[in-house]
Design a protein around this nucleic acid. Structure first.
Lengths: 357, 357
DNA sequence: TTGTATGCGTTATCAT
DNA sequence: ATGATAACGCATACAA
């Protein structure tokens, strides 16, 4: 229980604390003579010395901690991103502090405060927020940034001055996706839009709208609900009940993310409907679990793990105000296969990627 | 950048550092006079004071950090557990340090060392390990525990003296599952056993074997491979090719976890086979994503989020050597529907839960 | 190159 | 009840 300290190591090696510190921690190229260094290392090994990161953090001014706040870690979208972030953090010998908020602004604020308290080197806000950002959040982040903390947010613009941003091209992606579907012959669209205030959801809806408008098409409906599978399920049920005589005319449900699309498909199935025969469905994100999902879901692929890695790189980068745009790819699969499109119901694995750039 | 310190707050409030500390941090019921306390609080608020958790950790001897190491955070099994853990940690005003290892023993060791270095109050090893535990891991954990750190491992017995353990009844669960399937009329089983060295996988295989043996049945095959969807996919392909004339006789594939089962079903589908008509498939865990998975997958339900919560509770509990057993439930769904079993292919949502206790 | 001494921000022990 | 002050474990500017 008397955790061995660096002084103990120094004593055993017969050197000063400073020397021991330099050996164990070649912060600069101030490496002592190899003979001495070896003695210190041996002493440390024999004593089972484990540096106290807290004390180091206090003495230096960097903790090696990266805070990541997500809405729901159990959501494949976030868990993939966090996976990438964790990977990149390891590359940089940093540790990941994780917080989930369940989309609660209060919890998000608490998480940021906690990370600031731990003097995390950077805070990454991976979850999208409402259009109106909580002023308290801005205040907390501003203070954090003023004290040297790096802030990375997902969105279109920095939430506080100097913040870095990961911009996922949601609007463009949604537009590309709907254009590809129109090209496939789809004409009647229902948008499962998620929460109306959530920026990510709103941007995707906006992209869908823009693509439709360009083709002179008006969406049959634009519904709002939860950003999770339940939201997709409920919205789909709602949509179908309101569809009236448009049912069966090749309606396509456009969900603003994959889990919503999956919930929607489950809802349709509960109605005895088949996808894509009775209705087409498309999602967004291309979460890894789609790999084993049937019907193969048409979606807009985002490099989730890569996004996490980039977020951490951005967070660790010395210069302020960095900005990384994330592009995606339209992935057409069976869930939006039309009668005219080749191979409906035959090859389950068929998959056509339409490049973006 | 000149982060405001407690001294600054004290100065502005016109009190001593000690008093300010007592106010901001009612560690004991040594609360100063309310009049003074209010002044301090106001000063802190005005200055935007944020306590330095690192310094606090150094002065107290607790960091409020809980380290969790998993194999792959993107795996729904782990992300659900981590979600529960994170939730419980928040309840206890603790922060979660997350590390992923990709099943690499070296990475696991590094993660434990890092957590120990940060003086995490507890380290939770949520991922199963090989039967032969790396002695270096044991050494690191022992030292950590000796220094007052709490260790929680998932498995059947503590990996180091005094460690707490979360015991998931894998063997019992697997046995119950296979018994239920036998009762449903299934007779020909192929076990998709995952990595032969992994304790969790081995225990489940053992449970399957035990259940089969009790019914006088010998498994057609027991295959080994990865513990992920790819492992399930590959094993299923392998199994089918070796099945010879037993194909089509109502074979049931028993996977040691859900993602493997999903991979297996995808593999069968690529062969033009239908589940459960051409083959039955069962998984293990009941990951949340199964909610929208088709065919509805028979599995053994584990309270994943609850497990995460319990792990943290155990980690935070003062007494050493705690032990929590996790029970589960057999959940029979369409993926193992037999011709004789009612409602095959009709009600997709039918689901029968067979209690365990 | 190596050692000495100071600071990092708090908590806690002691007086007062 | 409140205020000095000594840890807490380490890094580093400065001195040797």
């Amino acid at each position: 229980m008397p955790a061995v300290r660096l002084v103990d190591v120094a004593a055993r090696a017969g050197v000063s604390l400073a020397t021991a510190s330099r050996v164990i921690n070649g912060s600069r190229r101030r490496v002592p003579a190899e003979a001495i260094a070896a003695r210190v290392r041996i002493a440390a090994e024999e004593l089972g010395y484990v540096a106290n990161a807290q004390a180091q953090a206090l003495a230096r001014s960097s903790t090696g901690l990266i805070g990541i706040v997500v809405h729901d870690i159990a959501d494949p979208y976030f868990s993939s991103i966090v996976g990438g972030a964790q990977r990149q953090a390891r590359e940089n010998r940093s540790q990941v502090l994780l917080a989930g908020t369940n989309r609660d602004a209060e919890a998000e604020l608490t998480a940021v405060a906690a990370f600031a308290s731990y003097r995390a080197d950077a805070i990454i806000l991976a979850g999208s927020r409402q259009r109106r950002v909580d002023p308290r959040l801005v205040a907390a982040l501003t203070r954090y940034a003023d004290n040297g903390g790096r802030v990375v947010t997902f969105g279109r613009r920095p939430i506080v001055a100097g913040a870095r941003v990961i911009e996922i091209r949601n609007r463009d992606g949604a537009r590309q996706l709907v254009e590809a579907l129109i090209m496939r012959g789809l004409r009647d669209f229902v948008v499962l839009g998620g929460p109306s205030g959530l920026v990510t959801a709103a941007d995707r809806v906006s992209g869908f709208r823009s693509g439709l408008k360009a083709a002179g098409i008006a969406p049959l409906q634009v519904l709002h609900g939860g950003f999770n599978r339940q939201g997709g399920y409920d919205s789909a049920l709602d949509a179908w009940s309101r569809l009236g005589d448009r049912k069966g005319t090749g309606v396509c449900l456009l969900a603003v993310n994959d889990v919503m699309a999956q919930g929607a498909i489950t809802a349709l199935r509960s109605l005895g409907l088949h996808v894509p025969d009775d209705a087409a469905v498309a999602g967004f994100d291309d979460i890894p679990t789609l790999q084993d999902y049937d019907p193969p879901l048409t979606t807009f692929r985002l490099p989730l793990q890569h996004i996490g890695e980039q977020a951490v790189s951005l967070a660790l980068s010395p210069e302020d105000g960095g900005w990384i745009a994330i592009e995606g790819t339209v992935v057409l699969r069976q869930s939006t296969a039309t009668a005219s499109s080749e191979s409906a119901r035959t090859d389950h694995r068929s998959q056509i990627a339409v490049g973006t750039s």
